[in-house]
């Protein structure tokens, strides 16, 4: 099956004021990928996601959705494009003044002409998809962290988006819940045919769900690997990537004065 590009990132430079976080990021996310954005803590993974979902403008470079330049588009057009994304935030970011059903229903109320009863049904459906049937009228403060993340997913799926973004889905969850969440992401991707972008540094998740990835590094301030995580583990010789993917077992070291070659697998 020929792969069709969905998101193209070109020469992206991310900066806070004059402090450059990452430069020269160039990669492609294809339709139907589970694309992993990985890297050590503080390297700018979440910031990269903020660039992709329209919360922070790049200092340089461009992000294309299909053939539309996302940040070059008119704000109205960009808002319209953002409606095709679903985003799950790290801690859920549920609106605390709304019940779970209302959280899921808000975008439906705004962008569809459905009747309240129908909206309520859809919201219940989405909640049952993430295993939270019956919790419609709870408030976010009344449920656990893992449940909040799942409601976050339900909310992200409300408008049946083309792309789902996940910011650290398994952070702060016990191993079993994290595994269940991974399964859920895969299941949704298979059944809905969405493209999924996941920011994470959980190795288990990376190998379990990812089929494409980019590795960004805080020290070099740019990307040092792309490709299928399992192939990166087998083929990539870059010490930082090897250490990361083997949880430090590789004990590879960067020798002083040497610049290891990045591995960009097609």
């Amino acid at each position: 099956m020929a792969k069709e590009p969905h998101i193209i990132v070109q020469d992206l430079t991310m900066a806070y004021g004059s402090y450059v976080l990452q430069r020269d990021l160039t990669f492609t996310v294809n339709h139907g990928d589970v694309f992993i954005i990985m890297g050590g803590s503080g390297c700018g993974k979440s910031t990269l996601m903020r660039h992709l979902i329209g919360l922070k403008a790049p200092a340089k470079g461009a992000v294309f959705y299909g053939d539309v330049n996302f940040w070059g588009a008119e704000p109205v057009e960009r808002d319209r494009m953002m409606r095709h994304f679903g985003v799950m935030y790290q801690s859920g970011a549920l609106w605390s003044s709304l019940t779970l059903a209302e959280n899921v229903a808000l975008s439906l109320e705004l962008y569809t002409t459905l009747k309240p009863a129908q909206i309520r049904e859809i919201a219940s459906l989405k909640l049952s998809l993430v295993g939270l049937a019956g919790f419609e009228d709870y408030y976010p403060s009344e449920i656990s962290g893992g449940m909040k993340k799942r409601v976050g997913i339900a909310r992200a799926m409300a408008l049946d988006p083309e792309i789902l973004f996940f910011d650290e889905p398994s952070a702060g969850l016990d191993p079993v819940s994290a595994r269940l969440l991974d399964d859920l992401i895969l299941e949704l991707k298979e059944s809905l045919g969405t493209t999924v972008v996941v920011v994470t540094h959980e190795l288990a998740s990376i190998f379990a769900i990812g089929n494409n990835s980019v590795f960004i590094d805080a020290a070099e301030k740019t990307m040092i690997a792309t490709g299928h995580p399992k192939r990166l583990l087998e083929e990539c010789a870059h010490p930082t990537v090897r250490n990361f993917l083997t949880r430090g077992e590789a004990r590879a070291e960067v020798k002083a004065g040497e610049r290891p070659t990045p591995c960009f697998l097609a």
Binding site: G54, D79, M82, Y89, S107
Partner: peptide, 8 residues
């Protein structure tokens, strides 16, 4: 942020 990405 969640409001913004929802388009609100």
């Amino acid at each position: 942020d969640a409001l913004k990405t929802t388009g609100v």
